[in-house]
């Protein structure tokens, strides 16, 4: 056993705890240990630690954002 305290274990868990940030009039930023799955239940490849999910519906690389929300003047509800 290591001498690691409970506090250390908790903070380690916190570090990978997922966070979701909605960007004003833009995508949803997802950080942390989350699996992204499509309609059919297959895993969507995730190539980076932080990903942006399209919220405007106009991206050409859905489910990810490609910045198109700016061109269409998307305004988040």
């Amino acid at each position: 056993m290591t001498g690691r305290s409970d506090d250390d274990v908790t903070s380690r868990r916190d570090r990978t705890r997922p966070t979701i940030v909605t960007c004003p009039d833009g995508p949803i930023l997802v950080r942390g240990d989350v699996q992204i799955v499509d309609d059919m239940g297959s895993i969507v490849p995730r190539r980076r630690t932080t990903v942006a999910l399209c919220r405007c519906g106009a991206s050409t690389i859905k489910p990810y954002c490609d910045g198109t929300h700016k061109a269409i003047g998307f305004s988040a509800p």
Binding site: C23, G26, P27, L29, R47, R48, T50, V51, A52, S59, T60, I61, Y64, C65, D66, G67
Partner: peptide, 16 residues
């Protein structure tokens, strides 16, 4: 192709 996806993430982090 990498930059289409990556920079849509980066622009949010860099701006805000």
């Amino acid at each position: 192709d990498e930059h289409v996806e990556a920079d849509a993430v980066h622009e949010q982090i860099a701006g805000r």
